[in-house]
Simulated assay, not measured.
Amino acid sequence: MPALTPLPAATPPVTMTIHQLPTGSYSTKANMALRGGSRRETVQFAATAVLVQHPSGDVLIDAGLGRDVEKHQQMLPGYRRVEHRVGSPVVDQLAAAGYDPHRLSGILITHSHWDHVSGVPDLAAPVLITAAEVTYAKKQGADKIFTSFSPGHPLREYTFDGGPYLGFAQSHDLYGDGSIVIVPAAGHTTGSVIVFVALPSGERYAFIGDLTWRLEGIEKNIERLFLMRLFADSDRKQVTVDRERIIAIADLVRVVPAHDERGFAGIPLLVQEAGRGPV
Rank of each mutant, 00 (worst) to 15 (best):
V197I: 15
A250H: 10
V271M: 14
I246T: 13
P8K: 11
F226E: 13
I145N: 00
M16G: 00
T189F: 00
R254Q: 11
K29D: 01
F264E: 08
H111D: 13
V127N: 07
V117P: 04
H116R: 06
K138I: 02
I218F: 12
I145L: 03
H172D: 01
S56C: 01
V255T: 15
T5F: 11
E133S: 08
L174N: 01
V183E: 09
L108W: 06
A248M: 09
H116A: 09
D122V: 08
F231D: 12
A124I: 04
D62V: 07
A33D: 02
K71H: 11
F231H: 11
S27T: 04
E244A: 15
I109H: 14
G106A: 07
L174W: 01
L166S: 09
A232Y: 10
G217N: 05
A232H: 04
L155K: 12
S118F: 04
K71E: 07
D235G: 12
V197H: 09
F146K: 13
Y99D: 08
V91H: 08
V90K: 14
G64H: 06
R204W: 01
T130Y: 02
T159S: 14
A206F: 05
S25V: 01
D62R: 05
I247N: 06
A97Y: 00
R262H: 05
Y158S: 08
R103A: 05
T159M: 09
A137N: 00
P151M: 01
V241P: 02
A169Q: 12
D58Y: 12
T5E: 10
E261F: 04
D115M: 06
L108F: 06
R236W: 06
T42D: 14
S179Q: 00
D58H: 13
G202N: 02
L269C: 03
T15C: 12
L215V: 05
A63F: 03
W114S: 07
A63R: 09
P154E: 15
D235I: 10
R214P: 00
G178M: 07
I247Q: 13
L155D: 08
P268V: 14
P257D: 10
F226V: 13
E83L: 07
L252T: 13
Y158R: 07
V43R: 06
T28I: 09
M228K: 14
S25G: 13
L252I: 03
V120Q: 03
P278K: 02
Y165L: 15
V14M: 11
H259M: 08
D242E: 04
H111P: 12
A10S: 12
L225S: 13
A96Y: 01
D92P: 04
G36A: 02
E83P: 02
A3K: 07
A131C: 00
Q93L: 10
F231E: 14
A274K: 14
N31L: 05
S88V: 15
A97N: 03
I182Q: 00
G66M: 02
P2M: 14
D62S: 15
D62A: 07
R229A: 10
S88D: 05
A265R: 08
P278Q: 02
P55K: 09
D62W: 00
T5I: 05
W114T: 06
L104Y: 03
T147L: 00
P13C: 08
P200G: 05
I222A: 06
A274S: 12
N221C: 02
E244V: 14
